[in-house]
């Protein structure tokens, strides 16, 4: 059992690293949110699954699961809020360190069915 646990926890950590790597490698804000939310949720899930057999009591095990569920709820909500803020203020295409143009009205932007970003 301990080997399965070690495997699960290691895999979980790997997904955290991958999520962070995505955050650094992807070059627009939305894609970065994709990477960090999805990889970290799976990573935390695997981590919780890995330590679950070591829980000393039923409530302790449930607490681990509760932590995962709460993080899921928080990251789902936070990812929407950040993405929405970026969209409203048109921040995704700005270079590093640039400040949003306060006169730009993101709300009335013409729907653009093509890519937000040109091909690489």
């Amino acid at each position: 059992m301990i080997y399965v646990q070690i495997l699960l926890v290691s895999l979980g950590c790997l997904f955290f690293i991958v999520g962070t790597l995505g955050l650094l490698r992807f070059d627009d804000a939305y894609s970065r949110i994709h990477a960090i939310t999805k990889a970290d949720n799976l990573g935390l899930g695997l981590l919780v699954l890995g330590i679950l057999p070591s829980a000393l009591s039923v409530p302790q095990g449930l607490k681990l699961i509760l932590i995962w569920v709460l993080v899921l709820a928080a990251s789902a909500t936070a990812s929407y809020l950040i993405a929405h803020y970026i969209k409203q203020h048109q921040l995704s295409k700005l270079p590093h360190g640039a400040r949003p143009d306060t006169t730009a009205d993101g709300q009335d932007a013409e729907p653009d069915p093509t890519n937000e970003r040109g091909p690489q």
Partner: peptide, 16 residues
């Protein structure tokens, strides 16, 4: 997302 991140060039084609 892991598969896309770990490619030599990030394999994403983002859009709306």
């Amino acid at each position: 997302v892991a598969k896309r991140t770990l490619k030599p060039v990030p394999d994403i084609n983002p859009g709306t």
